[in-house]
Design a binder for these strands. Sequence first.
DNA 1: GCCTTGACCGTCCACTGTGTCATGTGAGGT
DNA 2: ACCTCACATGACACAGTGGACGGTCAAGGC
Lengths: 209, 209
Amino acid sequence: MPDPAPVPGPVPEPELNATAASLLGFLQAGEASGYELVGIAQQSIGDFWSLTRSQVYRELSALAGRGLVTAGPAGRRARRPYTITDAGRAAFTRWLDRAPEPEQIRYPLLLTVSFGAALRPGRIREFVAGHRVAHERRLADYLSKVEAGGLDRHLRATLAFGIRYERAVLAWMDELPSLLDPGPGSDSGSAASPADAGAGLEGRGQGQV
Amino acid sequence: MPDPAPVPGPVPEPELNATAASLLGFLQAGEASGYELVGIAQQSIGDFWSLTRSQVYRELSALAGRGLVTAGPAGRRARRPYTITDAGRAAFTRWLDRAPEPEQIRYPLLLTVSFGAALRPGRIREFVAGHRVAHERRLADYLSKVEAGGLDRHLRATLAFGIRYERAVLAWMDELPSLLDPGPGSDSGSAASPADAGAGLEGRGQGQV
DNA sequence: GCCTTGACCGTCCACTGTGTCATGTGAGGT
DNA sequence: ACCTCACATGACACAGTGGACGGTCAAGGC
């Protein structure tokens, strides 16, 4: 068949990505500079949707190029305020109505735990202790925000997720020692608790390590 | 003052990144090709540490360039087996003993929920229902793996995290309708949008785990 | 008045992470 | 002989991360 040269046709119109969309979402409340958007975003959704300076400026330029935002004249310092356009509002609404993609979790601590067999016994507990304080702090932070009140229902709903997540992590950290507690034959500082019971199963040879 | 030229000193020796490290971790069990490593990784740690084909091949080349792995002669098809070197083992051990960085979560659904005020009321529930089945499936998967037994303690501990996480997500999804439903006394300072008044929690026959 | 400090504001760059397309090989079926 | 599908690698474009850098203004110390 005669190689059908790419028909121009209707331009595919690249959809918004979630990062750009969230910027539009914030801009709906009024103009803001890139710097401000970074702050706003980190404060409100930063715990489950990271975005960095570089990202924000890059997306703002792209959005401006597509006419979804317009840059105003430079302000006080190098401040460059962006305003959402009608096309931007429409694009945001379309984006919001799409089914969101699955979540992504990247948890280095779990990598360490998975490979923990090659690690000195107490080391994992040290790492976990370090992370624990951060999780406790975040949980306390979420709780105080909720208790302070004055939040929009939807923000409160996302905080509810954060609270459940942090509690789950803390509960896991609590049970971790009992999960990792070596069965018979491996000595560590703490005596093997008989509560470990079943244990035994180390069927996986994993020859050389 | 005489610009203190950057002291050469000992070469910084770029440390391993977590992805490269995990490849070394798997290679400790024996040689493997990039293709196999993708499979191994996705199966064992894929739910909390993603890595893609491109990533794996890129890292393997880089590791080979640093002498941490060596590529064997091509095998069956284009298969190129990699073997970890002593330097690689040492680098892996050093990496494993470092404090792991905090986790990263990117959850588009939560973005949608945050901005949900601009969305038709039932839409969020539709999205959540779609995600719910995936979470239920993953939870069931984790549970069956644990019950099947034969897992190394450390793998079981990471699965325990997955189980707690999925249960937390499901519990949040269960409570979500009541959070988003404008109930009594939920309106604080800002004006409660009248748009989404209706839509109480109709029969969500949820329940399980 | 001058100078340091630090918040503000943006840009650039190297590296890491993701997804798709291209390419080639071999085993098995028809 | 041909097709198809699993195996296997690589190239590439784009998204995301984090640090380095440079400029601007305000406030406070000397």
